[in-house]
């Protein structure tokens, strides 16, 4: 694999990381902590929304984020032909 390709592969990986970790931060620290009070004004069923994000929602999002990353990277590995045979 050429250096140029390697750079491109790594840059795309970093782009994925930045996007996914921004979501990770926004959901847990944003919705679950910093803006929890404001979101508590909204209710979904019996759950105040800020409370729901802090004790439920953020955990679901964490799980989804990892599987999204796994899929993105598997595709990227194939595209750059660096996947494991």
């Amino acid at each position: 694999m050429s250096n140029k390709d390697l750079n491109q592969y790594w840059k795309t990986n970093l782009k994925y990381l930045i996007i996914l970790l921004s979501i990770w931060f926004t959901v847990s620290y944003g919705c679950g902590i910093l803006f929890a009070d404001a979101l508590n004004g909204i209710k979904i069923g019996g759950f105040p929304l800020g409370f729901w994000f802090a004790q439920q929602g953020s955990i679901y999002v964490f799980v989804v984020l990892i599987f999204v990353y796994v899929n993105l990277m598997n595709k990227l590995d194939k595209k750059f032909d660096v996947d494991e045979k």
Partner: peptide, 23 residues
């Protein structure tokens, strides 16, 4: 509500592990 610090704290680290360390 404050119990969330344990719930998020002890799960959110896995995102870091999966994205930044494990592979």
């Amino acid at each position: 509500y404050g119990g969330a610090q344990y719930l998020m704290g002890w799960t959110g680290g896995y995102v870091l592990l999966a994205l930044l360390l494990a592979p």
